[in-house]
Amino acid sequence: MKITVDEAKCCGAGQCVLVAPEVFDQRDEDGIVVLLDTTPPAEQYDASREAAQVCPAAAILIEED
């Protein structure tokens, strides 16, 4: 799995951080997503997929292996 984020699309809702805090964070100044791990371990796959699904701006892109 490879994850990318489109910061320009991010609205700072923070749903990704709530669902997958090991993979996503937010910048303090504006709440924009920060990708902590572009290639998370297998145990983070489900949470990463859920984060992409719940993102209201569709700013998280997941490329499956």
Rank of each mutant, 00 (worst) to 15 (best):
L61S: 12
D6C: 09
V33T: 14
D25Y: 00
P21C: 14
V54S: 09
Q53L: 13
A52K: 15
A47E: 10
A42G: 08
E22S: 13
C10M: 06
L61A: 15
I62A: 01
T39M: 11
I3E: 03
I3H: 03
D25E: 14
V5R: 01
C16E: 01
R49T: 13
I62H: 07
L18Y: 10
A47D: 10
E22Y: 11
V34K: 05
R27C: 02
A51Q: 08
P41I: 02
E29L: 06
L36C: 02
Q26W: 00
P21W: 10
F24W: 06
D30W: 06
I62N: 11
V5G: 04
G14Q: 03
A42S: 12
D65M: 04
E7H: 05
T38W: 00
E50S: 07
P21L: 14
P40A: 08
A59F: 07
D46C: 05
T4N: 12
F24I: 02
V17Q: 08
L35C: 00
P21S: 13
E43K: 12
A42R: 10
T39I: 08
D25N: 13
I62D: 02
C55N: 09
V19D: 12
A58F: 14
F24Q: 01
A51P: 05
C55H: 06
M1T: 09
M1A: 08
A58Q: 15
A52I: 05
A13S: 09
A51M: 12
P56Y: 12
M1R: 07
A59D: 14
E50Y: 14
A13P: 00
A58P: 06
E64V: 08
A8Y: 09
K2L: 10
S48G: 06
R49Q: 14
R49N: 10
Y45N: 10
P40W: 05
M1G: 01
P40S: 05
K9M: 12
V5Y: 00
V54A: 07
T38S: 15
L36H: 09
C11I: 13
T39A: 15
L61T: 15
P56Q: 15
A52T: 10
E64P: 08
D37E: 08
I60W: 04
L61K: 15
V17A: 03
C11Y: 08
E22P: 07
T39Q: 15
L18W: 11
V17N: 03
E50A: 10
I62Q: 03
Q53A: 15
Q44F: 13
D25G: 05
P40T: 02
V19A: 12
V5P: 04
L18H: 10
V19K: 15
A42K: 14
L61G: 12
P41H: 09
A58T: 15
T39C: 03
I3Y: 07
D46I: 02
T38L: 01
A47I: 06
G12R: 00
P56W: 04
